[in-house]
């Protein structure tokens, strides 16, 4: 099956450089200190942040920065085939360590010595670009928890299909595409790359095209996330009433 029609449209009708319908919300869960959901088409991820709270366990007691811990889970029903992945599954561990490293690069951990920040990410519906959606949800939850960060961080996935760079791969495109794919996360204001994970063989020139497309994707996702965070802040400010100094 061809992933790109002769007219240059993808299976789901999108143009090559088009994102799926993006929806996100913050403050979605009652018990967590910060929480968010992030939807990209039929991919839906929720994230919760507990902390910063006093460090638990001996090892983290004397630290000079915050200890960021991550857990990542994919619901059994979220994929097209029902599959229960264990916490020790390679795919789970890979995403978990990516989330942890990316958040470490973003959170100003040195401002919160002797604390622990727990970030839990749960995939509710999986239709491609899970890693990027998870990182976006995790970042929104961290921001909702009021944890200081360097900059707004956004992620997206790009790939090369029939020599055409495409943005935001869905499940079918991820599985059927024989071309390379790239997941990138960046600080959208500072324009610095945080995560750069490329799979598959690609020509050196191709890297640049893909990276440029990914940068555009990250900027677009970042813009949407920014407006959600601003809306929430406005709502909170209204609820709080006028500030008297």
């Amino acid at each position: 099956m061809e992933l790109l029609s002769p007219e240059g449209l993808r299976q789901d009708g999108r143009r090559p450089r088009e994102l799926r319908n993006l929806q996100s919300a913050v403050d979605t869960l009652g018990n967590a200190d910060g929480s968010a959901t992030f939807e990209l088409g039929n991919t839906k991820v929720m994230a919760a942040v507990f902390g910063p709270r006093a460090a638990q366990g001996k090892s983290s007691g004397g630290r000079r920065d915050a200890d960021i811990r991550c857990e990542f889970a994919i619901a059994a029903f979220s994929q097209s085939e029902r599959k229960q992945l264990s916490k020790r599954d390679r795919r789970i561990l890979e995403v978990r360590s990516m989330l942890k490293e990316a958040l470490k690069a973003n959170v100003l951990a040195e401002l919160m010595p002797g604390t622990t920040i727990d970030v839990y990410v749960q995939v509710l519906a999986a239709d491609g670009s899970i890693g990027a959606a998870s990182l976006n949800a995790a970042f929104l939850a961290v921001a909702d928890a009021g944890i200081p960060v360097k900059d707004l961080m956004a992620a997206c996935v790009v790939g090369l299909v029939q020599d055409t760079p495409i943005l935001d791969l869905n499940q079918m495109e991820e599985q059927m595409s024989r071309g390379p794919s790239l997941m990138m996360a960046m600080h959208v204001g500072l324009k610095k790359i945080v995560v750069f994970q490329a799979d598959g063989r690609m020509p050196v020139e191709g890297v640049e095209t893909l990276a440029e497309l990914a940068e555009g994707g990250c900027q677009a996702v970042g813009k949407a996330m920014r407006s959600v965070l601003l809306d929430n802040t406005r709502k909170l400010a209204l609820a709080r009433g006028p500030v008297r100094l």
């Binding site: 869960l29 018990n31 929720m46 919760a48 857990e71 889970a73 727990d118 839990y120």
Partner: peptide
Amino acid sequence: ECSPCASA
């Protein structure tokens, strides 16, 4: 499954 998101 009880997601850790649900409660500390």
